[in-house]
């Protein structure tokens, strides 16, 4: 893939679209980004970044076992994702070890189990694609699964959008007015596990947590309205995915890493120049200039 000096923006965008695998990758990654971006606003506001990291790493053995048994990998991932959270809660309650330590040791334990299983179970599992994602090599059955899970998560989040916002903001009030907080807690965890599963196809297990927290953090710097935050989060996630895939196509870079780097750059931009919360406060600079 040679980068010609007369490459125009037009062909920069259009050329990759002539490849079937690129069209599929762009579409699927956008979908995955939208789902993770949607969830991201809740996770960043709830302070669940570490939890997101834990769940996304813990799904590893689930994916491996499911592949080995010929089951949908989302099922295995889901069981281990929720299982890890239950285990974290249990150990925290029954021991004097602090929560962040418990989270760290549980997810690394699960992750290690996954790696050991991959080396033991003889199958065609590609460790590299699990760890680093393979948006350019998504199979048809994976496409179906991804679409199904994505729709499920989007529908769940849409229905319980306001309840989840209340749960993140003031769970005590939610409980006081008879809203089922226990259900909302596990709903959010379920969505987290499912989003981790679809996210790992794009960027892999190691980086999927970025899909779950960076868009939300970026949006949080740009607005004071929850609905806007969700929209900005989703948009920034989708744009990052598109940029990441294009850049990796033209410059022959690792796709997952490129997507996450694009997200990080967008975050840094918001961090520096966000109108109200950025370091340089663009709005203020503009007003001073006037």
């Amino acid at each position: 893939m040679e980068l010609c000096s007369f490459l125009t923006l037009d062909s920069f965008i259009k050329d990759p679209l002539t490849h079937d695998f690129m069209r599929k990758a762009l579409l699927m990654s956008s979908l995955v980004a939208a789902v993770c971006g949607f969830l991201s606003s809740y996770l960043t506001l709830k302070g669940w970044a570490l939890m997101g990291d834990a769940v996304s790493h813990s799904v590893m053995p689930g994916v491996v076992v499911a592949y080995a048994l010929g089951l949908p990998f989302s099922l295995g991932a889901f069981i281990f994702g929720v299982g890890s959270v239950a285990l974290i809660g249990f150990i925290k309650q029954k021991s004097r070890v602090k929560e962040d330590t418990v989270i760290g040791l549980v997810f690394t334990g699960f992750f290690a189990l996954g790696i050991v299983l991959v080396s033991k179970i003889k199958s065609n599992i590609d460790l590299h694609s699990i760890l680093f994602g393979s948006p350019l090599g998504i199979s048809l059955s994976d496409v179906k699964q991804t679409i199904f899970i994505s729709l499920l998560v989007v529908i769940l989040l849409s229905i319980f959008r306001k309840d989840l916002m209340l749960y993140c903001f003031d769970p005590r009030h939610a409980k006081t007015v008879g809203i089922n907080v226990f259900f909302l807690h596990y709903l959010l965890l379920t969505c987290l596990s499912l989003a981790a599963v679809v996210g790992l196809q794009s960027v892999g297990i190691i980086l999927v947590v970025a899909m779950l927290i960076t868009p939300g953090a970026t949006a949080y710097l740009l607005t004071d309205k929850f609905d806007n935050m969700t929209v900005i989060s989703v948009l920034s996630a989708i744009i990052s995915s598109l940029i990441g895939i294009y850049v990796s196509f033209w410059f022959d870079l690792e796709t997952g890493g490129s997507i996450v780097l694009a997200q990080t750059f967008i975050f840094l931009f918001a961090f520096l120049f966000a109108p109200r919360y950025g370091i340089f406060k663009l709005k203020k600079l503009f007003n001073d200039y006037k």
């Binding site: 903001f169 007015v177 809203i179 949080y220 309205k225 929850f226």
Partner: peptide, 19 residues
Amino acid sequence: IDSQFPISVWDVVMMGRYG
């Protein structure tokens, strides 16, 4: 309460009606 939560006065008070 998390005073940095992106939510307006109106939305907080509306939460009184959620139940």
